[in-house]
Simulated assay, not measured.
Amino acid sequence: MTETALVLGEALVDVVNRTDGTVDAHPGGSPANVAIGLGRLGRRVELLTWLGEDEHGAQVRAHLAASQVAVVPGSWDAPATSVATATLDATGAATYDFDLTWDLSAAAAPTAEPIVAHTGSIAAVVEPGASKVLAALDSARPHATITFDPNARPALMGAAADARKAIEKVVHLADVVKVSDEDLEWLCGSVDDGSVDALAREWARSGPAFVVVTRGGSGATAFSAAGAEVSIQAPRVTVADTVGAGDSFMGGLIDGLWTAGLLGARRRDALRAIDEDSLRLILERCARIAAITVSRPGANPPSLEELAGA
């Protein structure tokens, strides 16, 4: 049977307000973007989410299907599909407002046992769905690698201290964590880079094989449980906007570990023993994937063919 990724989390419609006054709407949501990134890289992937049987839900479903992402049966119980409004600044960076609720249906069940289970963002913090996501990850861990991207949304997650407690429950369960420096700054209440790296090191000692901190155009650093640190630079590109950049990086990270044969519970020890050169190569490929995404508008990760030609 073909190995499968399970992504748990929100799929929604992003309404983007650009600095030139134009407005466009397209499907989004951090976990959904990760699933799409994996689908475009040729991976079999299922998305366990919560959509409404409405126009926005149909738009999301079509968008997922176009990238070979299957929606888990039972994911259609929401009273309405959620909407996120992104406002871009002059640099292309986005701030968000949400009209969103998050839950999982008891009737929703993946069709295959996954080799990796991923979650992130709203799905891991906002109740009542967050507790169900945590339980699903715990159930998957005996056979799957667990990956996590906090992808903080302060407008929905409340006080940073409370969000950190919920986020760290997943961190301790995860095998791989990818987090932006901006998210760590918010969670530790400081813009001091020493505090950001200290929290990443603390997380790496608490369960994951390694924690990757992305720093936008400044690259990324992986902090391993064993104390190793691996840094890479980001390719230089003209930025259209940063929407979906971190999600594309996350999808590339899962895909890279998949190619290296390091996914699945039986490979957990091998994942923890990954050497620095192998990890660096995977991170550099993730950075190329993210660079393609930021070079064009919206959360639009590359296909395998586009990546090969980049």
Rank of each mutant, 00 (worst) to 15 (best):
V171D: 03
K165N: 09
D175T: 07
H172C: 13
I167E: 01
A140R: 14
P208Q: 07
S190Q: 02
T147W: 08
D138S: 13
A174Y: 05
A161F: 03
P208I: 09
V126G: 08
V177C: 03
A123E: 01
V196A: 12
A135E: 08
A198W: 01
H172E: 12
G129N: 10
L173M: 15
L184E: 01
S190V: 04
A209C: 12
W203Q: 12
L187I: 06
P142L: 11
S139Q: 15
L184D: 02
A155W: 01
I167V: 15
A200W: 04
A200G: 12
V171G: 05
R205W: 09
L173I: 03
A204H: 02
D197N: 13
E202M: 06
N151V: 07
A123D: 00
A209S: 15
V170K: 03
A144L: 12
P142V: 11
A155R: 14
V212P: 00
A152P: 02
R201G: 00
D193S: 14
I146W: 02
L156E: 13
L156T: 05
H143D: 00
L199A: 06
A160N: 10
I146H: 04
P154M: 08
A163P: 00
L137E: 09
P150W: 00
P142I: 12
L199Q: 15
H143C: 14
D138K: 14
A166F: 00
A140F: 11
E185K: 15
V211F: 04
V191C: 01
A163D: 08
W203V: 08
L187Q: 03
V196L: 04
P208N: 04
R164P: 06
D175P: 08
I146Q: 01
E127T: 10
T145R: 05
E202V: 02
V179A: 05
E202K: 13
E168M: 15
L156I: 05
W203N: 13
P208D: 03
V126M: 11
V125G: 01
P128Y: 08
A140H: 09
S180P: 07
A209Y: 08
D193C: 07
R141F: 01
V196M: 04
L187V: 04
A135D: 14
A155S: 15
R141L: 09
D197W: 06
S180Q: 05
D181T: 10
F148M: 01
